[in-house]
């Protein structure tokens, strides 16, 4: 019987342990309950939450947070969190890995576009004049001011202030 040498990168696991929610990866005993309920796994062979957890246990940094990682195929549905008998909260481990990928600048470029509004304007959706008109037409109240300075104070940094009123948000 041939023996294949397996190495574990504990330094990566330590880093993951320090990200909020990352520590729970240690509890995984590879039972696959998460796979059975995972919608992404149902629709693509490229995503399997058990394999992601296995790679986390082995500390496979490149596979997990390098370019084109499968973690971005997670649908964020929380079915794995619901089902996991070990309180691994697989989706939360995956989100912790996403945070690490963002820090390494290997996240898909689309993520920036989808998440940057909040730090700049306090809301996730771009406020367009079309939506203001639509609100008026429906007889809805004016939009409230968003306390963006407070937000930037607690986030501890000044995000670039580019307030884009108009964008191609509504087709």
């Amino acid at each position: 019987m041939s023996k294949k040498k397996i190495t574990v990168d504990f330094r990566f696991r330590d880093k993951l342990n320090k990200v909020q929610g990352g520590k729970h990866h240690n509890y995984c005993y590879q039972c696959s309950a998460c796979v059975a309920v995972c919608p992404a796994a149902r629709f693509t062979k490229n995503f399997n939450p058990r394999i992601i957890l296995l790679k986390a246990l082995l500390g496979m940094e490149e596979e997990l947070i390098g370019e084109n990682s499968a973690i971005w195929l997670c649908t964020n549905c929380y079915s794995c969190y619901e089902r996991c008998p070990q309180d691994v909260r697989p989706i939360e481990v995956i989100i912790s890995l996403k945070n690490m990928a963002v820090e390494r600048r290997t996240a898909p470029p689309n993520l920036t576009k989808l998440s940057e509004n909040i730090g700049k304007t306090g809301v996730s959706v771009t406020v367009t004049s079309a939506v203001r008109r639509m609100r008026q037409e429906l007889g809805l109240p004016e939009l409230k001011d968003i306390p963006i300075e407070e937000l930037q104070t607690i986030l501890g940094e000044q995000e670039p202030q580019i307030f884009q009123e108009e964008e191609k948000n509504d087709k």
Binding site: V19, N99, V102, S115, K144, L155
Partner: peptide, 26 residues
């Protein structure tokens, strides 16, 4: 008055969980 985006539990949380939690706590 005073609320902001919750913030969104998918993209913003993927970007930075601690910031996500901070804004939600606010």
């Amino acid at each position: 008055d005073g609320f902001t985006c919750c913030p969104d539990p998918i993209y913003f949380k993927a970007r930075d969980k601690m910031k996500w939690l901070t804004i939600a706590a606010r």
